[in-house]
Design a protein around this nucleic acid. Structure first.
Lengths: 175, 175
DNA sequence: TGTACATCAGTGAACGCGCGTTCACTGATGTAC
DNA sequence: TGTACATCAGTGAACGCGCGTTCACTGATGTAC
């Protein structure tokens, strides 16, 4: 995690891990089959952290505000762990590791449950996917630096966008 | 572009480019200062392609359907050029290259103009960002394989989600 | 028309680098009898 | 209590690899006079 934060995904090599642990280059092989296994393990931890962040935000939110609170938490988590987030959602390498997929699904379900609870059955699938895409897109754009914005206001901006898109009451003048 | 499509971002090395051009390893330096310059040039081309795709979709759409048509085009472009898309939005390396940023802005403006045209002034910024995040998120999730879906139905699914989230008329039962 | 020179794409050998991974090995710790 | 053995984390040297980049050089093309 430290290496990831300091040098990004490309800097996360088996040898770098060994160095960080002040241990020989071969030592990591005692614990992981190969590099992919180590990356998968790190990404799994990342999903667990995301799940916890979403869950905590949901529980702490006022009634009716849970979904927006999750959106803010999602974006914040990505912004605070950019390299980790990229690793989690990056290459399709992960398909192989069931543990990773399970952790990803668990995190996803926190968001899904909240959306489902507030949506009519006939448009549920679209809305769940839409909410996920919205927060994921915001997160991606923020940590790729495509949105010029001082870090302090990320929460505020996320909240405004999420409320505007998710809670709108029609007749906004569009379409 | 070919190399990118075949081997991904990691496979796009100066030497690979030289090999593909049946030319010595040093030849690329005649045309690009270093590797970063080459990557930036490729990404710039990618943004130009995205801009064209958005513009074409907008022009071909029926009245009132332009925004959703752009959403479909955005996601489709990403899905058809996964490695290129990742390079375009990947590392923050790009900040340095003004050409790249200009190309990115130009593509962005196509979407921005359409959203702005259909939104009341007071919520414009949030809505533009929200639309961008939605399509970008959908694109990211699709090409990371996080949405299990046969490729043929990507357009359909994107359309359904975009219509549900962007065109909803309130009283959907939520919140 | 002919000559001199600059430009420019490409060459080929070499460098040092960090990497993932192999191999055979060491030394400490626990456990069965 | 003592001995034999398995387990396990770590060692250190070595491998082959592709990479970005350096260097000095070649040969063709265009252009000025």
């Amino acid at each position: 995690m430290q290496i990831l934060a300091e040098t990004g995904v490309d800097g996360l090599s088996l040898r770098a891990v060994a160095r960080r642990a002040s241990v020989s280059a071969m030592a990591p092989y005692r614990h992981y089959a190969d590099k992919e296994a180590l990356l998968a393990a790190v990404a799994t931890k990342g999903f667990e952290g995301l799940r916890l962040a979403l869950h905590t935000a949901d529980a702490a939110a006022g009634p009716g505000d849970e979904l927006v609170a999750q959106a803010v938490a999602y974006v914040r988590y990505a912004y605070e762990h950019p390299a980790l987030f990229r690793l989690m959602f990056g290459p399709s390498r992960l398909c192989q590791h069931p543990e990773l997929n399970a952790a990803g699904d668990t995190a996803y379900q926190v968001l899904e449950a909240r959306v489902t609870a507030g949506t009519a059955p006939e448009s549920r699938d679209e809305r769940v996917l839409g909410c996920w895409a919205l927060v994921h897109g915001l997160a991606s754009l923020f940590l790729d630096g495509r949105i010029k914005e001082d870090a302090g206001s990320i929460d505020t901006l996320t909240r405004r966008v999420a409320e505007n898109i998710l809670n709108r009451k029609s007749s906004n003048g569009d379409k």
